[in-house]
Simulated assay, not measured.
Amino acid sequence: MLQFSYYGHSCFQLNDGTHKVLTDPFLTGNPTAAISAEKVEADTILLSHAHGDHFGDAQAIAERTGADVVGVPEVLGLLRLPGAKLHGMNLGGTLSLPFGSVRMVLARHSSGVAGGCACGYIIRMGGKTVYFAGDTAIFSDMKFLGERDAIDYAMLPIGDNYTMGPEDAALAAKWLGAKHVIPIHYNTWPMIAQNPEEFKKLCEAASDAKVTVVQPGESIELV
């Protein structure tokens, strides 16, 4: 069993019943946040890059929960945590963790810190393969990601302006060969306002993926 809980923007938690993985914990100052930084739980935090709407509350949550934090070294260098809690990686690397593993993959986006790069993650947990795209434009190597791994769920940004929009995200789902897609990174502010139901129609017409729209504060089981 693997549970997905959406907390708004690009922040979600994967929970296999024993371990809790949290992505890009921007909660304080997030108008769509469905939980506070003081209450969210995590054993591992995955950071895709250092922009404030992704790096967010990583320091405070890691201090409170004792979570390990994964990211590129330049992003981790912004944190004031014991070295044993920081797991630096770079593109193409795989890290084994108590819940399974993560592989750091390319994202086409700026990093928010000098010398760093933005990334996404292929997460193996609870018998599922989950692709967290982070902030990204569409890029042709998404076809390779789909060939490299049988992706059960792809968490794709659809907000446009800062990331790919609905049309490109629908094409990305096709290239990835994902069985399921959950849209993220939209409706936080007017600049990235989107209708997720329209994206669902677009994506399901363009690919074999089934789209599940999860509202902030909702949880679903990844089947």
Rank of each mutant, 00 (worst) to 15 (best):
F4H: 09
Y7T: 04
G8H: 06
C11W: 03
C11V: 10
F12S: 06
L14Q: 03
D24S: 15
P25R: 04
T28P: 00
T32Y: 01
A33H: 10
A34I: 06
I35R: 11
A37Q: 06
K39R: 12
V40Q: 01
V40L: 02
A42E: 03
D43T: 01
S48T: 15
G52C: 01
H54L: 15
H54Y: 12
G56H: 00
G56N: 04
I61A: 04
G66I: 04
G66Q: 08
E74V: 05
L76A: 04
L76K: 03
R80L: 09
G93M: 12
T94H: 04
S96H: 11
S96D: 13
V102E: 08
R103W: 01
A107M: 09
V113K: 01
G115H: 13
G116L: 04
C117H: 06
A118Q: 05
C119H: 08
Y121R: 12
I123F: 09
G134P: 07
F139A: 08
F139S: 05
S140Y: 03
D141W: 14
D141R: 15
K143E: 13
F144C: 05
F144E: 11
L145H: 11
E147T: 09
D149P: 08
A150E: 15
M155C: 15
I158T: 06
D160M: 07
D160F: 07
E167H: 06
G177C: 02
A178R: 11
I184K: 11
T188F: 07
T188M: 15
W189P: 00
W189A: 14
P190A: 14
M191E: 15
E197S: 06
E198A: 15
E204D: 10
A206M: 10
S207P: 04
A209W: 07
A209F: 08
T212S: 12
Q215E: 15
Q215M: 13
P216L: 09
E221W: 12
L222N: 04
V223E: 14
